[in-house]
């Protein structure tokens, strides 16, 4: 299934992805990473793997976007 992977130790919790996601798949999590940021979590099945979160994210490698393979059930 489509999925956004947040590498939590790279996330600085700026929430730009939260604002940008058209499907509201990203939410501020309750956890705090080792640097001290409240990192973002992915929590939705509505994700279309559009990649907007990836582009607005100011960190270089904090987000990986997975698109479902052909034949895979959504």
């Amino acid at each position: 299934m489509n999925r956004v992977e947040i590498h939590k130790e790279e996330c600085k919790g700026c929430r730009l992805c939260v604002d940008a996601c058209p499907k509201h798949c990203l939410i501020p999590g309750s956890g705090i990473n080792n640097i001290g940021y409240q990192f973002i979590e992915f929590e939705s099945e509505r994700c279309t793997a559009c990649g907007i979160c990836y582009y607005v994210c100011p960190e270089l490698g904090a987000i990986t976007v997975h698109k479902k393979d052909k034949g895979e059930t959504p």
Binding site: G51, Y54, Y55, L60, G61, T64, V65, K67, D69
Partner: peptide, 11 residues
Amino acid sequence: MIKHQKPRAFF
């Protein structure tokens, strides 16, 4: 499959 990830031009 991965659609977007850290570009290879980064370390």
